[in-house]
């Protein structure tokens, strides 16, 4: 939870008072490409969850702008370890592998198997449930800046157990979503509030949230291992080398290459329940 405090952000804000930054050219090392498995089986509350997609691609040099690295011709299969039901995903020849008869069961364990270039990758994960979003509110006072609109979602954390959450917020028209992860370590059993705000940009008033802006907020129930994974991923994505962050590390997901251990895959096999709200700022 303390990650919410984002001390790195705090110190970076301080530094920003007097510092300046500019774009420069840097020579970076180039690693050989690795398989990337984005296997996110997310089940929205109140739906069947039958339609699922798994994306396969490969990594590229850091400054490459053509990300046309879809992986075609792999074999993708998910097994429910409790019922032994197998789900074979169909190659759409664009890097997506889809299925329309997946059956999600809370707390059941699932195993992913990907066979690509003669190497087999596996991962196992449990389907985590999530508490429903009970309320959405907008305000000026919440958040960091009292002059900028923010939106807060509320939900009730179940007491007496460890829970881990992921939030994904995206404004209509934005290229990218924002991710955040949270645990109930310091707030177990309480009503949780999570606010979202965009920093004011004095040159561009449309940057911050304005009346009429539409945002989509998703709340996921995630496993502790995925929480550790996504926290590190988000932290490294956000800080990208500032002096108050930890030394950036190799982020390892749960996809193991059983044929050649060293050639593990990037990405993660997650199985979650989620709920979402779409909110229009007043």
């Amino acid at each position: 939870m303390i990650k919410t405090i984002k001390l790195t952000v705090l110190f970076t804000v301080l530094i920003a008072f007097i510092s300046c930054d500019d774009k420069i050219d840097v020579d970076v090392p180039e690693a050989a490409p690795r398989l990337v498995i984005e296997a996110s089986l997310d089940w929205e509350k109140g739906t069947s969850g039958n339609n699922q997609t798994i994306k396969l691609s490969t990594s590229t040099p850091y400054f490459d702008t053509t990300l046309n690295t879809s992986v075609i011709g792999a074999s993708v299969k998910v097994t429910n370890n409790n019922s032994n039901v197998e789900y074979n995903f169909i190659d759409q020849n664009d890097g997506n592998y889809t299925i329309d008869n997946f059956v999600p069961v809370i707390n059941d364990s699932y195993t992913l198997e990907v066979i690509y270039n003669g190497e087999t990758y596996t991962a196992t994960e449990r389907l985590m449930s999530v508490a429903p979003i009970t309320n959405v509110q907008q305000s000026l006072e919440g958040g960091f800046d009292d002059e900028v609109l923010d939106v807060t979602i509320f939900f009730d954390d179940p007491a007496g157990e460890e829970n881990f959450y992921m939030f994904r917020i995206k404004e209509e028209g934005d290229l990218f979503a924002e991710l955040e992860a949270e645990s109930d370590e310091f707030s177990d059993g309480n009503t949780q509030e999570e606010f979202f705000e965009k920093a004011r940009d004095n040159d561009d008033e449309t940057e911050e949230y304005n009346p009429g802006d539409i945002v989509n907020i998703k709340l996921y129930g995630i496993s502790e291992r995925y929480y550790n994974y996504i926290t590190l991923l988000v932290e490294q994505y956000d800080t990208g080398g500032d002096p108050f962050s930890a030394i950036p590390a190799e982020i390892k997901g749960n996809c193991i290459n059983v044929t050649n251990e060293a050639n593990y895959a990037f990405g993660y096999f997650r199985v979650t329940e989620f709920n979402q709200v779409t909110y229009t700022f007043q």
């Binding site: 990337v36 990594s59 850091y62 290229l175 979503a177 994505y237 950036p248 990037f266 993660y268």
Partner: peptide, 13 residues
């Protein structure tokens, strides 16, 4: 030493 796409974001490795 590289990048890959995850959740629509470019993640550095």
């Amino acid at each position: 030493n590289g990048q890959y796409e995850y959740e629509g974001l470019s993640i550095a490795s």
